[in-house]
Write a protein that binds this DNA or RNA. Structure first.
Lengths: 358, 358
DNA sequence: GCAGGATAGGAAAACCTTTTCCTGTTTTCC
DNA sequence: GGAAAACAGGAAAAGGTTTTCCTATCCTGC
């Protein structure tokens, strides 16, 4: 009974099947030389046939192609990389361990990189500068072709130390260095979208509850929400922005404050979906109907939160996948020596659900 | 007009700075030859010095080390890989686009792989078998050292097609083939943990609300919750398991059903945190106090859900990071030709919060 | 019949590192 | 003082692919 060995087999050299790793019966991947031998040509010729270069008889080319197919040949990317200086790999460094924001960005990036046969190495710095440095070094040592930096905050961040050695693009949170390439959400536009929606549906006493004032996202959204109100000749309900936390708890508290400050308030724009959800709960429990009495708009379009809320939340979608996709395109540009710089903005999208339908 | 071609130009050699990719002034990474030249030795000798092999005078070794440091030398992993047949890269294929389950697994795996200098290539199949096949082929073509397969479901899944060619470990959702290596959560133990907690705190009329009966997780949790009750001489409140959806909506509905079926019910064990959260809301709105009147235990420890709930949820943590870590260790074993097989179980952990504290 | 061009494909270098083998040189011991 | 052993480091091959250069064949036109 052969093939019944206890699977040891380290044996690097000697044997024809020499890869020590995948010791399964699985044949070691075919090499170009083997393809060439089967087709009866030289290795160089086989390379030309497979890559469509050089001058070959169609017949010869076919023979090589057939041999390659028969042996299930795939060129060893390590050898290719050694010559071309490219690895067809990019690193994605994120500070967002939960993945709430970075995963959609990653998926979008993959969509753009996949057709280029580029894979993504995911590195989670967990918000730790030391880990980030470590990952940058690791990625550089691996000779990756480029780096995408992302995170869960939209605040500008200092450039990646060491990123001068390789094309780098910042997604969602821009670099503080204007010479870097950054792709971010159109936060001002998102805030205007939300407020416009409320104003257009006839609301006039609109409050704004949001996260910590020192968070870029909170500040920008509040700023532009205010401006948009002013443009319609309106003022913030309660006369101020309710800054706090990005939590449901704060949403509940703040909704109460809003109602006390302005019992006639007919809409609340919340800085994120958690806050909006908290507000929805507090309003319902205070006997205020949503959306009939008070319309509610959130931000982020965090599906499970927005659809789990009662009622389901109208909210601003950051188009994270699109941000990732465009970041990847810019990275491809930089890799191909078409460098750019500056901040590119991706529009947000309003997703209308029950919480704002009058 | 030469050099003005429509961008074909691969141009490997010729120029001193030959890497077309990182065209920044950033110097191309130093090669071993350059280090050797600076140290005044042959390349082979430099290699020995840096890798601690061969017989060298300490002085020579130091000279090489110093040169390497000065040039910031890192060996080109492509050349190393070409020789060793390893890429120090593993693929992680997930079906969980949201990342709720796969990201913690990934982080745990990274913790185990990092010290081995192994990086993770993330591939999101988005639950599509075609994409999955595509990714497997891509990973194999890249000569990755191994694959970890994970997802958001705990149901056994068919083995990865083509995985015979490379060490593979299944995390969270096991392979249906018992010869494969799988690392899963101890679902029976988790369910028992939850019920034991309720029983130990004096609850006797315990209901169970969970997801679809055809989901492995729902079935197993329900089964073992029931057994644990039987062991204490108790029966399910309502006399049956409330199967439904993994949603808050179902949690709210079902909580109402539970109360109608057994007004004396004093605890509900829910199949996940969304359901538990829905139940918490429904109970509160029905004037039932949690945990005083009815204790509540969820499952999954989805932080934002469990802590956002009123009251915060006691819940079963799947130890996802630990599952990822162990899966990575098993993969390292397989890569090092210490193959194993079968399903390994990782204990769950009860996280106690307000919803169950009497 | 032959010069010269077009064609087809082979040979070899290059990429970078590791490892094996081998050659000098120094030391040790009698 | 000389033989053998120990030591230090160089030379070269290997690994798989791509590209460049070169040779051999076949035409074409005279």
């Amino acid at each position: 009974m052969p093939g019944n060995l206890p699977q040891r087999r380290t044996v690097p050299g000697k044997q024809p099947g020499r890869r020590s790793a995948a010791a399964r019966p699985g044949t070691a991947p075919a090499t170009l030389g083997e393809v060439a031998a089967l087709a009866g040509v030289a290795a160089g010729t086989a390379s030309k046939a497979l890559n469509g270069r050089g001058r070959l008889r169609p017949e010869t080319r076919q023979r090589v192609l057939a041999a390659a197919k028969e042996l299930n040949f795939h060129p060893n990317p390590l050898a290719q990389g050694l010559l071309s200086g490219r690895t067809w790999t990019v690193g994605l460094i994120t500070t967002d361990s939960i993945g709430r924001f970075s995963i959609p960005v990653l998926l979008g990036a993959e969509d753009a990189l996949g057709p280029e046969q580029i894979s993504v190495l995911l590195c989670d710095s967990r918000g730790d500068a030391i880990r980030e440095q470590h990952y940058v070094r690791t990625l550089l040592a691996r000779r990756i072709d480029g780096i995408i930096v992302t995170g869960r905050r939209t605040d500008p961040r200092p450039p990646l130390a060491g990123s001068a050695q390789v094309p780098t693009v910042y997604a969602l949170g821009p670099s503080t260095d204007p010479r870097d390439v950054s792709v971010v959400a159109d936060e001002p536009g998102g805030a205007r979208l939300a407020v416009s929606h409320l104003v257009d549906s006839g609301r006039t006493r609109i409050a704004h509850i949001t996260g910590p004032a020192h968070h870029h996202a909170a500040a920008v959204r509040a700023d532009h929400a205010g401006r948009r109100l002013t443009e319609s000749g309106l003022e913030l309900s309660g006369g101020r922005v309710y800054y706090g936390e990005w939590t449901e708890l704060w949403g509940r508290h703040a909704a109460g404050q809003v109602l006390r400050a302005d019992p006639g308030c007919d809409a609340i724009f919340c800085g994120n979906d958690l806050i909006a959800r908290g507000a929805a709960d507090a309003l319902r429990e205070a006997g205020v109907r949503v959306p009939e009495d008070v319309a509610l708009v959130g931000y982020d379009n965090w599906e499970v939160m927005a659809t789990g809320s009662r009622p389901a939340l109208t909210t601003v979608d950051l188009s994270l996948a699109e941000i990732g996709r465009i970041a990847a395109l810019r990275l491809l540009d930089a890799i191909a020596n078409r460098p750019a710089s500056g901040v590119e903005t991706v529009p947000c999208r309003l997703v209308v659900r029950q919480s704002s339908i009058a």
